[in-house]
Design a protein around this nucleic acid. Structure first.
Length: 411
RNA sequence: CGGAGCGUGGUGUAACGGCUAACAUCCCUGUUUUGGGAACAGGUGACUCCGGGUUCGAAUCCCGGCGCUCCGACCA
């Protein structure tokens, strides 16, 4: 993409009411735009990055047998009354509204209920199980307080996977494969090294759930990290029993702040019992389906990556999530030789399938470098009169700062 | 939801209760420049968040809204 065609512009300063690092950088670089507290639009660069994250998650969900679908955002009150989750006393984050005829509706904040209802049409036999169904969808949560930029919004993208199994043993297999898939996702997204599988409250059907917590000062969770075992315990559940279960000593734990980037949860038969989701086993006996839910917020992950991979100059995207692979910067000369050579290189790389953002704007070198640092594309290629005199370009790695000269024809 | 702070051109800031609301940046014109946000000249752009009030006079003081941020509470 030619940068002269990119409608977003960079800013020297973020709006004064943005304090969080992720929102500051993402707004200044033109990735996102705030409409209200906790409500952000994704601009072309931001959507590209968000979609990269979505793509990685989708691949890993498919790899464990996930089938993608898309449920509705508008929610039927009756379905939620069945489990008691329509009641404000149980769930206080609903956005509720109504039809012209006064029928009450909600905007979905999660989807266990409607998907369980849906599955009654499709799951009949043990032969049908297990089923893993997932979606990417905008969730709506009326948080008492939105905060930390894109880390905690009232409207945000969520990947939610739900599993349906015959029994606990089958469920635990699915659960374990989902856990491994989550590990791979965070590794691929460049935050695996700082992300810990964290033991957290399990609810009524399992002793623990597992959170994926990425260490960050911007986080709102407090976890206790066991570096030797690469696990952590959420402060909410830290007690002697948990320590004994995990075989760890309090003295080996370090208190850290972290961002919850993912959560996996065993649901048992809570929802299948509520809605009568059953299957026939090999003996023809009717049994309740055992469920699990597995969430990752791609937009929150994007904010987490921005928090982690950035410096005072701007963003430093890992390769897998960068909006473009290469930022081609042409420093024009009077005769137009650099422009001609850069145009040609841009066409050549693009034809080869390389995702290139080409700064073909008629602006000064300093501005182009500053914008490039801010936008944070991993690989920078600079072409100028100087480099062309050696039939070369200069490449610079955004993350390491390493600079090399390369022959133009080698690219 | 409790507490605190803040709302002034697109953005960031300034302005004692008193001239035509100032400066920087951005943007537009022109000239010049071209390896780290260049220089010069000219120009556009603001019902000072909204509604009341006090005052001869309000961006400034008071009251009420609304919005934003932060702290806390909350958080499948």
């Amino acid at each position: 993409m030619k940068q002269s065609h990119l409608f977003t512009r960079t800013r020297r300063e973020a709006p004064k009411d943005e304090v969080s690092k992720n929102a500051d950088l993402l707004i200044r670089a033109g990735y996102i735009s705030k409409d209200m507290a906790g409500v952000y639009s994704f601009l072309p660069l931001g959507l590209r990055t968000l979609n990269k994250i979505v793509g990685v998650i989708r691949e890993e969900m498919n790899s464990i047998g996930g089938q993608e679908l898309q449920l509705t955002a508008l929610q039927d009150k009756k379905v939620w009354e069945t489990t008691g989750r329509w009641d404000d006393r149980n769930v206080d984050i609903w956005f509720k509204t109504h039809l012209k005829n006064d029928t009450e509706l909600g905007l979905g904040f999660t989807h266990e209920e409607p998907l369980t209802v849906l599955m009654r049409e499709h799951i009949r036999s043990f032969r049908d199980l297990p089923v893993l169904a997932y979606q990417f969808q905008t969730k709506f949560r009326n948080e008492a307080r939105a905060k930390s930029g894109i880390l905690r919004g009232r409207e945000f993208l969520m990947k939610d996977l739900y599993s349906f199994s015959t029994d606990d043993a089958e469920h635990m297999n699915v659960y374990e494969s989902a856990k491994q898939a989550y590990r791979r996702i965070f590794d691929r997204l460049g935050i695996g090294g700082e992300t810990y599988v964290t033991f957290a409250s399990g609810g009524s059907f399992a002793k623990y759930s597992h959170e994926f917590q990425t260490l960050s000062e911007a986080g709102e969770d407090v976890i206790y990290v066991h570096e030797g075992k690469r696990i952590a315990v959420n402060k909410e559940v830290l007690n002697d029993e948990v320590l004994a279960d995990l075989g760890i000593a309090r003295a080996d734990l370090q208190e850290k702040k972290a961002i919850e980037v993912g959560n996996i949860f065993s649901l048992g038969t809570r929802f299948s019992d509520a809605f009568g989701l059953t299957y026939k086993d090999a003996e023809g006996t009717s049994k309740s389906v055992v469920m699990g839910s597995y969430g990752i917020g791609p937009s929150r992950v994007m904010g987490t990556i921005a928090e982690m991979w950035s410096d005072e100059k701007g963003l430093k995207w890992p390769d897998a999530v960068a909006p473009f692979a290469v930022h081609l910067i042409a420093l024009f000369d009077k005769e137009g030789k650099v422009k001609a050579a850069a145009d040609e290189l841009y066409e050549r790389l693009t034809t080869k399938g390389v995702e290139v953002l080409y700064d073909d704007r008629d602006s000064g070198a300093g501005e182009k470098f500053s914008d490039s640092d801010l936008i944070g594309i991993p690989q920078r290629i600079v072409m100028s009169e100087k480099t062309l005199a050696q039939d070369s370009v200069e490449t610079k790695d955004r993350a390491t700062g390493k600079v090399e000269m390369m022959k133009v024809e080698s690219l």
